[in-house]
C-alpha cells in the first residue's frame, strides 16, 4: 500500500466516521466538535487531491469561520447548560433507512461507472489523450496562482493551440459573489440586530 493510499484511507475514515457521529450525537456542542473533525479531514483530502489553496480555504472559512459561527449560535441559543433536543427512535430509524437506501443508490452508481474510460469517452475522443496527459501532470502545491488568475479572467492553464483560452475565466461570477457577500453581511446584521422596544409615547401634558 502506498503512502498516499494510506493517508487517503486514514482521512476518509475520519471524515466518514465523524460525519456519522454528527448524525448520531444529540449534544450540539459535541456535534460541532465532530463537524470540525469531519471538515478538517475533508480539508486534508483536498490537500491529497493537490488542491492546496482550496484545502487552506476550507480550513480558514469552514473550520475557522463557519463552525465558530455555529458554536456562537449554540451559545446564544442555549437554554440549559447543555442543549439536547432528542430525536425519537422512530424518526431515527426512518432517517437511517432512507439514508441507507440513498447511500446504496449513490454507491452503486459510483461503482457502476468505469470513470477512467467512460468519462473520457463521453467528453470526446480528443480529450482522452488530454485526460491521460492531465492525470500525470503533477501540479502539486501550486494551485493558488492559477486559481487567482482564473478569478480575474485569465486562464494560462487552458490555452489552446492558437493561443486563445479554451476555458472561461470567472471574473463576473467572482464579482457577483463579492456583491452577494456584501448583501449577506448587511442582511445578517439586520436580521440578528438587538431589537429595541419602542416605548409607547406618553403624553406629558395630560
Amino acid at each position: 500500500m502506498t503512502l498516499e493510499a494510506l493517508l487517503f484511507y486514514l482521512f476518509a475514515a475520519i471524515a466518514c466516521g465523524s460525519a456519522l457521529a454528527v448524525v448520531l450525537t444529540d449534544n450540539v456542542v459535541r456535534m460541532a466538535f465532530w463537524l470540525v473533525m469531519s471538515l478538517g479531514a475533508v480539508a486534508s483530502l483536498f490537500f491529497l487531491l493537490e488542491a492546496d489553496f482550496l484545502g487552506a480555504t476550507q480550513l480558514l472559512i469552514y473550520v475557522g469561520g463557519t463552525v465558530v459561527l455555529l458554536v456562537f449560535g449554540v451559545m446564544l441559543t442555549a437554554t440549559g447548560p447543555y442543549v439536547q433536543i432528542k430525536t425519537t427512535p422512530a424518526e431515527m430509524f426512518l432517517g437511517a433507512g432512507v439514508g441507507g437506501l440513498l447511500l446504496l443508490v449513490l454507491a452503486s452508481t459510483v461503482m457502476g461507472i468505469n470513470w477512467e474510460n467512460d468519462v473520457a469517452h463521453a467528453l470526446g475522443a480528443e480529450s482522452e489523450a488530454a485526460l491521460a496527459a492531465d492525470t500525470t501532470v503533477d501540479q502539486s502545491g501550486t494551485t493558488g496562482r492559477p486559481l487567482g488568475l482564473a478569478f480575474v479572467g485569465v486562464r494560462p492553464d487552458a490555452v489552446g493551440p492558437d493561443g486563445a483560452a479554451t476555458r472561461p475565466g470567472y471574473l463576473l461570477p467572482f464579482e457577483i459573489v463579492s456583491v452577494h457577500l456584501l448583501v449577506v453581511l448587511i442582511g445578517a446584521a439586520y436580521l440578528a440586530r438587538a431589537k429595541r422596544r419602542v416605548e409607547p409615547a406618553t403624553d406629558l401634558l395630560s
Binding site: T77, G95, G99
Partner: peptide
C-alpha cells in the same frame, strides 16, 4: 464514495435533527 457518505450523513442530519443549528 467518501463524498456520497458525507452527503448522505448531511441529508439524514437535516432530516432527523430538531435542533435548528
Amino acid at each position: 464514495l467518501v463524498a456520497a457518505m458525507l452527503f448522505v450523513c448531511g441529508v439524514v442530519c437535516m432530516a432527523v435533527k430538531r435542533n435548528g443549528i
